[in-house]
């Protein structure tokens, strides 16, 4: 009898310019709520949320960082250890989009090499003031080979999907890399695991 189903802990990070909606995205995901008042994050905070993917319970620990410029050197020190990073820009703010490249460079410099990335164009609910078309988002994502979604924390568009996709990417990589520790096999009877390994070698 498998006494314990195996549990995994993934550490994710939200980065991007101030005001793009990082805190709102996390608040929507963890508490299913939204507020329009802007309280800029002065520091770094996290929430946890458990999701089930491919039949596995995965605990996500999601870190929300301060986007303000003056904190950049400090916040980059939190990149290490993150297994997935979401780069958020605001579709109504051209500059925040242009800065995505800078954030990507930051990741290269400070995060683990194999970190999974994802670009989010947030506030897609606002149509009138849109400054960055979806095509441009797609293009930059293609250029850097990073998955891309347009999201809205306000309208709850693609928020769950963004986290699930990112976590799935981590899970899949995990499963592909170390067959011995692959989460898929964790629950398998050790004897059966043995035979299957023997037969494939």
């Amino acid at each position: 009898m498998a006494k314990k189903t195996y549990d995994l802990l993934f550490k994710l990070l939200l980065i991007g310019d101030s005001g793009v909606g990082k805190t709102s995205i996390l608040f929507r995901f963890s508490d299913d709520a939204f507020t329009s008042t802007f309280i800029s994050t002065i520091g770094i905070d996290f929430k946890i949320k458990t999701v089930e993917l491919r039949g596995k319970k995965i605990k996500l620990q999601i870190w929300d960082t301060a986007g303000q410029e003056r904190f950049h050197t400090i916040t980059t020190s939190y990149y290490r250890g993150a297994m997935g990073i979401m780069l958020v820009y605001d579709v109504t703010d051209e500059r925040s989009f242009e800065n995505i490249v800078k954030w990507l460079r930051n990741i290269d410099e400070h995060a683990n090499e194999d970190v999974e990335k994802m670009i989010l164009g947030n506030k897609c609910d606002i149509d009138g003031k849109r400054a960055v078309s979806k095509d441009r988002g797609d293009a930059i994502a293609r250029e850097y080979g990073v998955p891309f979604l347009e999201t809205s924390a306000k309208a709850n568009t693609n928020i769950d999907k963004a986290f699930n996709d990112l976590a799935t990417a981590i899970l899949d990589k995990f499963a592909g890399k170390e067959p011995g520790d692959a989460p898929d096999r964790v629950m398998v009877d050790p004897r059966r695991g043995d035979t299957s390994r023997r037969s494939c070698c």
């Binding site: 002065i42 520091g43 770094i44 996290f46 301060a66 904190f71 400090i74």
Partner: peptide, 16 residues
């Protein structure tokens, strides 16, 4: 100076 106020097991707050 930016100070990092760390809560054990929790968040960090930046104080300028």
């Amino acid at each position: 100076d930016i100070l990092v106020l760390h809560l054990e097991g929790g968040k960090d707050i930046f104080i300028t």
